[in-house]
């Protein structure tokens, strides 16, 4: 029974992947106006030569805030974990 279900899921997934690969848009097809806007205006609007830095810290600042929060949480978790492990070892 489990084998039948596994084969069914596998075949469905493969068929889905192949059809979606065949139905992909050509490269860069839905043309976006955002990149041209940023290349044309980022130096005048954010005064920085590095357009990537302008996008990361200015246009998409909230995204970077999330990244920084992820890093902060990871560091806090690691420090907390290693400290508590050490104390528990000492007690036993």
């Amino acid at each position: 029974m489990r084998q039948i279900v596994a084969w069914f899921v596998l075949i469905t997934l493969v068929a889905f992947l192949i059809t979606s690969a065949l139905l992909l848009h050509p490269f860069g097809y839905p043309p976006s106006a955002m990149d041209d806007y940023m290349i044309a205006r980022s130096q005048a609007e954010t005064a920085s030569n590095n357009v990537v830095a302008a996008v990361v810290f200015d246009y998409r600042g909230l995204d970077t805030l999330g990244e920084a929060t992820v890093l902060f949480t990871a560091v806090t978790g690691v420090l907390l974990l290693f400290r508590s492990l050490k104390k528990r070892e000492k007690k036993t």
Binding site: A40, Q43, A44, T46, A47, S48, N49, A53, A54, F57, D58
Partner: peptide, 16 residues
């Protein structure tokens, strides 16, 4: 900075 290629200056960028 002027739009387009330029030598670059550290004293730009605003908040960045």
């Amino acid at each position: 900075p002027p739009t387009g290629p330029n030598p670059g200056d550290v004293w730009t960028g605003g908040v960045i």
